[in-house]
Amino acid sequence: MATHEINVESRAVEGKGASRRLRLAGKIPAIVYGGELQPVAIQLDHEKVWLAQQNEWFYSSILDLSLGGDIQKVLLRDIQRHPFKQIIMHLDFQRVNANEALRAKVPLHFLNQETSPAGKAADVVVLHELNDVEVSCLPKDLPEFIEIDLANLVVGDIIHLSELKLPAGVEIPELKLGKEHDVAVVIAKHGKEDAEVDAPETAEVPATKAAKKDDK
């Protein structure tokens, strides 16, 4: 598992006014909570976080928050963005315990779709019903992503959640809730099937109304 270290600073003053001043200074107000320690208010450099948040690992990996060399392992649990400006407003991080299982969403990577029989067929549509999946595992086992090899995908194939190849120590909690939760992840079907479903039905004029029009 790759290590991702992010430097943070302590934040003594809280409140809307203080947070506004931090943002004007190029900082992001944030909080770290969870575990046996009390929540701690921190601040991060906006430019560095803005670059980091463009990477997939920022959302699905264990992050090392470094406060003057003191490292706390955390997961990003919430990110608040400005409605239209390229500004991160606030971040929430949750501490993780190395000996306790955690739940986190992990992105799915679809491999070899273009070279598969379904991917090369002109009239076949390959649908990705899910782009990420929630897993449960110890922090050391958390994968940054899960790969799905579609090399042998043909029209008519459906890959379900239970068919994903998970790393050792990783499980999908949703599968324990029953067969109805074993949803489709990938579907390969003819494109014309969608066209037939979406095609509008031609309205028929009832025979009685047609007869009345002819009588006039």
Rank of each mutant, 00 (worst) to 15 (best):
D123G: 01
I87P: 05
A121H: 07
Q86W: 11
V125P: 00
A122R: 13
G119Q: 10
H109P: 13
A122Y: 02
L127C: 00
L91C: 06
N99G: 06
A101R: 15
V96H: 06
G119E: 03
P107D: 04
A98N: 08
P117D: 03
I87C: 01
M89S: 11
V126T: 08
V106Q: 06
V124I: 14
F93T: 10
L91K: 09
Q94H: 12
F93I: 09
K105W: 08
V133G: 05
A104T: 09
L127V: 14
N99H: 07
D132F: 01
I88Q: 02
R103M: 14
K120A: 04
A104E: 10
M89H: 05
I88W: 11
Q113T: 09
A104Q: 15
E129F: 04
I88D: 07
D123I: 00
L91P: 03
Q94G: 10
H109Y: 08
D132Q: 06
Q113P: 00
V133S: 05
L111F: 12
V96Y: 00
R95C: 03
L102E: 01
H90W: 09
A122E: 11
V125S: 12
T115Q: 11
R95M: 03
H128R: 11
A118T: 05
F84P: 00
L111N: 09
H109Q: 14
R103D: 08
G119P: 08
V125N: 06
V126P: 04
D123P: 05
M89A: 01
A122S: 11
D132I: 04
Q94E: 12
V133H: 02
V124D: 00
S116W: 05
V126L: 02
E114D: 15
A101K: 14
N131I: 15
H109M: 14
N112K: 04
G119T: 12
H90Q: 04
A101H: 10
I87W: 03
A101I: 11
D132Y: 04
E100Y: 01
Q86P: 00
Q94N: 07
D132H: 04
T115I: 15
I88E: 03
P117S: 11
N131Q: 09
L130N: 11
H90P: 08
L108T: 11
L130F: 10
H128I: 15
V96I: 09
K105T: 15
H128E: 06
V125K: 14
F110M: 10
V96N: 00
V124Q: 04
E114H: 04
F110N: 11
S116E: 07
R103K: 15
L108I: 12
L108S: 06
A122P: 00
V133P: 09
A101C: 08
F110Q: 04
I88M: 03
S116I: 12
L111E: 07
L111W: 01
L127T: 15
M89I: 14
V124E: 00
D123C: 04
L108M: 09
N97C: 13
L127Q: 12
I87S: 06
P107S: 00
V96S: 09
G119N: 13
M89P: 01
K120Y: 00
K120Q: 14
V106E: 08
N99L: 11
L108V: 13
A122K: 14
K105F: 13
I88H: 13
A104M: 12
S116C: 05
I88P: 05
N131F: 10
D92M: 07
